[in-house]
Nucleic acid binder design. Structure first.
Lengths: 247, 247
DNA sequence: CATAATTTGTTCGTATGTATC
DNA sequence: CGATACATACGAACAAATTAT
């Protein structure tokens, strides 16, 4: 047996929430076979040293998320969703990277606007401050589930007048960029951090409040080495892992 | 201005905790200049639409963490700790990667044990199941603050009998491996995920309960291409970001 | 088939923590 | 600093569905 799982004093997070997070970690970490049976409420209550009600509340969360299914008199059963592997590299393309892992992959624009570039963006793209750029807020889905929430600054705006419309029409960033004369693009480096989701983000991605996000930021350069796009992509950490491959 | 910051119904996380997390995100995200003045309690209460007591409790947490400093009658001031950049690549070496960012970098072994390799480990290292390997639990520090918490399986054990002792003596994994005949090593790929810290992890790393961890897992191969080491490293997400560079 | 044991589902009550005013 | 309303956590008891004997 794995032994006791003791949880110490709160820190502002409810006990049922910590129990739910812990069980979810075990499920996603493969400690229960998919389709297998979860320990009973009583066993879990004993293991975490909490009341059965607290365990039930935690399990209710996981049922709402669809990773646990309860059957009266029989027990609870695991329905683990496989985590997708998202490749990070010099020539990463969104849909190509997920090929073979999900059958339906598509994107959706939430909002787009032409506006002066914020200072860090204009600096990263080598533009004079306040040059106008296209900011796009978008969601991507894999098999119907939200996978990423991205903010993309593309500029200067004069070079990418129809990018948003093209993306809406074609559903592919690579194809839309091609229309704007970007025949090829690469990224120099990707910075990866992690943090809690803000409430708007968890709402848009259908995540529990305070879910964990992987955040990747990078600059794309065109075939001539000119930086033209700054992207911040938030990944739902319980649905995807990032894979860095040496080339 | 960004407008209202509305926080929706709890989800098991106390309001003061969500306000604290939100302000910390803003500080770490660079929305307040280091050394600059934070909005007054009243302004923050209005912005988050909460009671002033709630803001005070949130700020008390941030003061305890040392990223906010209160001064009687003047206000509160930001003391943002710069996030370290940890390079991820084929030839990553721990201390070398942080050179120039932190003056004091060192490691510490919490525990080590020779034991049969768990199935995923033996598989990744190409060993027959249950071959004995050396498991090491370690912490690393940068400028006195815990930065990573790693679990390393090195095997087969017969090849690395004195690795733990050497590491304790030399304080360097690269140097210790050299003694065991590993003159050079590289990693093929790194998988990056993120999750909440378990209570033992947040305790060992001196983090708030439920803090966010970046988790990197990778396999190292020696100069002959033989996999000999499987590592899982947990990074405190608010102290470090990972940087993937194209080579 | 009958009954007991197991497991989830529900309803009380009580004490404490959280958040506002 | 209280007074108030609501969420959180525990404990005990019982009902309903399923499985084992």
């Amino acid at each position: 047996m794995t032994g006791e799982k003791s949880l110490d004093k709160s820190g502002g997070v409810a006990l049922w929430r910590r129990v739910a997070d812990d069980i979810r970690l075990d499920i996603n970490g493969g400690k229960f076979i998919d389709g297998g049976k979860l320990p009973t409420e009583g066993e879990l209550a004993a293991r975490f040293d909490v009341n059965r009600h607290t365990v039930r509340r935690a399990l209710a969360v996981l049922e709402e998320e669809g990773i646990v299914r309860a059957e009266q008199g029989r027990g609870r059963f695991v329905h683990a969703a496989r985590r997708l592997s998202y490749p990070i590299g010099r020539r990463t393309r969104f849909s190509a990277g997920l090929a073979g892992q999900a059958s339906d992959v598509h994107g959706e624009i939430l909002e787009y606007r032409i506006e002066p570039a914020p200072l860090p963006i204009s600096k990263a793209l080598g533009l004079t401050p306040a040059t106008r750029v296209l900011r796009m807020e978008s969601l991507s889905f894999a098999d119907g589930r939200p996978l990423t929430r991205a903010t993309t600054w593309t500029g200067p705006a004069s070079r990418f007048t129809s990018l948003a419309d093209d993306f809406r029409e074609l559903g592919s960033m690579t194809a839309s960029l091609h229309r704007a004369g970007v025949t090829d693009y690469t990224r120099q480096e990707t910075r990866i951090s992690a943090r809690y989701a803000e409430s708007s983000e968890s709402h848009q991605m259908g995540l529990a409040p305070g879910a964990v996000l992987l955040v990747g930021t990078y600059v794309n350069r065109d075939q001539d080495g000119v930086p033209f796009q700054y992207t911040m992509t938030r990944f739902a950490a319980d649905r995807v892992e990032l894979v860095v491959s040496a080339e």
